[in-house]
Every structure is written in C-alpha cells, then in structure tokens.
C-alpha cells in the first residue's frame, strides 16, 4: 500500500514537470480587465469627487484651495485596487491599467495629483449627481472639501459654500497621537 502510493506520487510529480514561471526575467502578462494602478484622464475629469466619496480605502483626497481651484490627489500607497472609482466615474475618466509592478521606496512614485479649474453649479454647488436612483450609493460628502493633502487625511466634513476658515483649520490637522 505504502509503495504503490509512493509510485503514484512519483508519477504525479513527474507528469507536469517543471511549472515554475521565469518571472520577472520573462514578462507575465495580466488578464484583460485586470484591476491595476488606476489612471486619471485629466481631460475628462470634471472634478465631481464621486471617486473620492466612494473610495473604501480613502485614498483619493480633494482639497478646494479656492472657489475655482480643486486639487485632487490619489495616494497609491493605500490603494486596494478595488476599481470602485472607475465604476462610479460618470465621465469614464478613470481606467484601471495593467500596471501592477508598483513596489517603490518613494510613495510619490505612485501618487497622482491633478489641479482642476472648476465651474460651480449655481444651484447646488456641486457637480456629481449620477446615482440618484440608487439610494445606497448616495454620495457622502457634497460641495466643497478640505482634505489635508500633506497628512493624507480625509476631513469628513464638506460645506455648501467655499469656507476659508475650514481651509485654514484643515491645514492644522493633526493625526491622533498616543
């Protein structure tokens, strides 16, 4: 019994032979539809902030430096590559690329920052209203946002009108200390 098992095991190992991939010496292409590093098309982006509101890892930050200038920052060091941002983008400005070799010692290598000139909706002060039919995907924070980009911190408040005081306050944001 023992011997026949061992013979079977030898055959089991011999038949497939060596299956080790030569990666990284030979490229290993990923599947189509792979969710790699997200990329932003600044021509298409309207700065609605839908991606930031739906990012489970809070990797996308929005800072309105003044009424007309919005800075969007994507910090890849925290990204989980779920691709939710690409799903909810109403303008298809975000695509999940095939890039996955992202190891780096400088997180700026995988950080994307965009400065967008904004027009404000006279009526509501915001631009994102795509998912009104799906109540569960309501956008969390509407209007002007004041995330602290230096500390990479999401400030969970938003205002309907641009508020300089909030901007200053968010500048002084401190992470909780022990």
């Amino acid at each position: 019994m023992w011997l026949t098992s061992k013979i079977k095991q030898v055959l089991l190992v011999l038949r497939p032979g060596v299956v080790t991939l030569k990666y990284p010496f030979e490229p290993h292409p990923v599947a189509k539809n792979f969710r790699g590093h997200p990329s932003w098309d600044h021509h298409k982006c309207v700065g609605c902030g839908g991606c930031a509101a739906h990012c489970p890892a809070r990797t996308i930050m929005i800072r309105d430096v003044c009424q007309d200038l919005r800075v969007m920052l994507y910090d890849g060091s925290r990204c989980t590559y779920c691709g939710r941002c690409a799903d909810v983008c109403p303008e298809d400005a975000i695509t999940m690329t095939e890039q996955f070799e992202l190891a780096t010692n400088d997180r700026n290598d995988i950080t994307v920052s965009m400065e967008l000139f904004m027009l404000t909706c006279q009526r509501c002060g915001r631009c994102y209203n795509m998912e009104t039919t799906n109540m569960i995907d309501k956008m969390g924070l509407r209007g002007f946002r004041y995330d602290n980009l230096e500390a990479r911190a999401v400030i969970p408040t938003a205002t309907e009108h641009f508020d300089e005081k909030m901007l200053e306050e968010s500048d002084r944001y401190q992470r909780p200390q022990k």
Partner: peptide
C-alpha cells in the same frame, strides 16, 4: 503542498480574468 498548489493556480488565474484580481475579487 507543491502539487495541490500547482493545480490551484489555474483557478486563481481564472479568478483574475473574471474579476480583475487574483484574490480579493471585489
């Protein structure tokens, strides 16, 4: 260990094709 994981690899790659990721399918 080696053989079970070799067999498993095929389904992992399929997962990547279907969902866009090898694990944590989302």
């Amino acid at each position: 260990f080696m053989q079970a994981w070799r067999v498993r690899e095929a389904i992992m790659w399929f997962g990547e094709k279907l969902t866009g990721n090898r694990k944590t399918y989302g």
